[in-house]
Amino acid sequence: MNDQQNQVGDIVCVDDDFLRGWPLPMPSVEGDKEERGRVLVIAGSREMPGAVILAATAALRAGAGKLTIATGSSIAPLVALAIPESRVIALPETSAGGIAATAAETLNGIAPRCGSVLVGPGMQDEPATCALILSLLPRLSDTQVVLDAGAMNVVRRQLQAVDASHHAQQKYVSSFHSPVLLTPHAGEMAHLAAVDKQAVVDNPVEIARQSARRWNAFVALKGATTFLAAPDGRIWQHDGGNVGLATSGSGDTLAGIIAGLAARGAPLEQACVWGVALHARAGERLAQRHGPLGYLAGELSSEVPALMHALRPHE
């Protein structure tokens, strides 16, 4: 299709026709689960075990063939029971409830074999989380990485003040060697970019574009209108969804959908654009059945397979 038909200025507008013109990678008719890709979800904590369950379930609903979950040892048995389709790896925890940076020793042998890696939903102990990411990134140059929630704090310059026990030489990422995807809402974007939240609300396109260039990352600035900025300046815009999506666990589900699509072989920008669109349309379907308020984040994932099928290219 002609992208210019969906373009306003230098912003590409995402609608059903645009998605059909940018179809997701599909396995062959006789393809096995290996062909559909592996996703690794590093997430969760004692206080937020549900976040990893939501994200991991969403990754499977998006079509990933194999799922590995890496989470704190205190909740690993619970997560394994909640998602019997997964392999669950129990990781050492910090006293603050985070995943210890030493977990990288285990994950370094697993993560590079996955098509995509999602880090962040429900994780606690920011310094430990960032130290873990810094240990993993050098091994993930050929892997599609999604950083969500607390994992995004690895780009904050303020992390130079972190306790010296966590990677004394480097406490943050000023620019990623290989682009990753960050998924902030306006408040998180203000925090990460060290700007006022109102500045983000007033000028989301420029804030997202500047941050994507600075960090060499794809930046999905989430909201009623979501903007995805690429490091090279490209911008996609998606309008849709409803107020019901503003609920606990909704962002975890979105991150999981994106990671699942990336595991299937979609480039990060395509996985994000499609993930945002599927997430919004899932909310619209649930609102039609239940009303605009009160449906749960955990109900979004089950809408995704049918939505993907409905958005396949016209034959």
Rank of each mutant, 00 (worst) to 15 (best):
254 L>A: 12
266 A>C: 03
250 S>N: 12
279 H>V: 08
274 W>L: 02
278 L>I: 12
253 T>D: 01
266 A>D: 00
264 R>E: 01
258 I>K: 09
260 G>K: 05
250 S>T: 12
279 H>W: 14
255 A>C: 04
278 L>M: 15
262 A>D: 06
274 W>F: 10
258 I>V: 15
260 G>A: 08
276 V>W: 10
251 G>N: 13
259 A>G: 05
279 H>T: 11
268 L>S: 06
278 L>H: 12
260 G>Y: 06
261 L>K: 04
259 A>I: 01
278 L>P: 14
274 W>C: 02
255 A>Q: 04
256 G>I: 08
275 G>H: 08
269 E>Q: 15
261 L>Y: 06
279 H>K: 13
265 G>A: 08
275 G>L: 11
253 T>G: 04
276 V>A: 06
273 V>H: 03
273 V>G: 01
274 W>S: 03
274 W>M: 05
267 P>R: 02
268 L>C: 11
272 C>S: 15
255 A>W: 01
256 G>K: 10
263 A>P: 06
250 S>L: 06
277 A>H: 15
256 G>F: 09
261 L>I: 09
273 V>S: 04
252 D>V: 10
278 L>S: 11
269 E>L: 00
267 P>T: 07
262 A>E: 09
257 I>M: 05
276 V>S: 04
276 V>N: 08
273 V>L: 07
262 A>M: 10
258 I>H: 10
277 A>L: 04
263 A>H: 06
261 L>G: 05
276 V>Q: 07
273 V>F: 03
274 W>T: 03
272 C>H: 00
267 P>E: 14
277 A>G: 02
266 A>P: 01
276 V>F: 09
260 G>H: 07
264 R>T: 00
277 A>D: 03
273 V>A: 14
258 I>C: 06
250 S>H: 11
254 L>S: 13
256 G>V: 12
255 A>S: 15
252 D>T: 13
261 L>M: 14
257 I>A: 02
278 L>T: 11
259 A>C: 07
255 A>V: 01
269 E>T: 05
275 G>I: 04
275 G>P: 12
262 A>T: 09
253 T>C: 15
276 V>I: 15
267 P>D: 15
278 L>Y: 09
252 D>H: 12
257 I>F: 03
264 R>F: 00
250 S>P: 13
258 I>Y: 11
259 A>P: 07
272 C>L: 04
273 V>E: 03
266 A>K: 00
277 A>W: 15
271 A>H: 12
251 G>E: 09
253 T>L: 14
271 A>M: 13
274 W>A: 01
268 L>N: 05
266 A>N: 00
254 L>W: 14
277 A>N: 02
272 C>M: 03
279 H>Y: 13
270 Q>V: 12
269 E>P: 00
264 R>N: 00
273 V>T: 15
273 V>M: 06
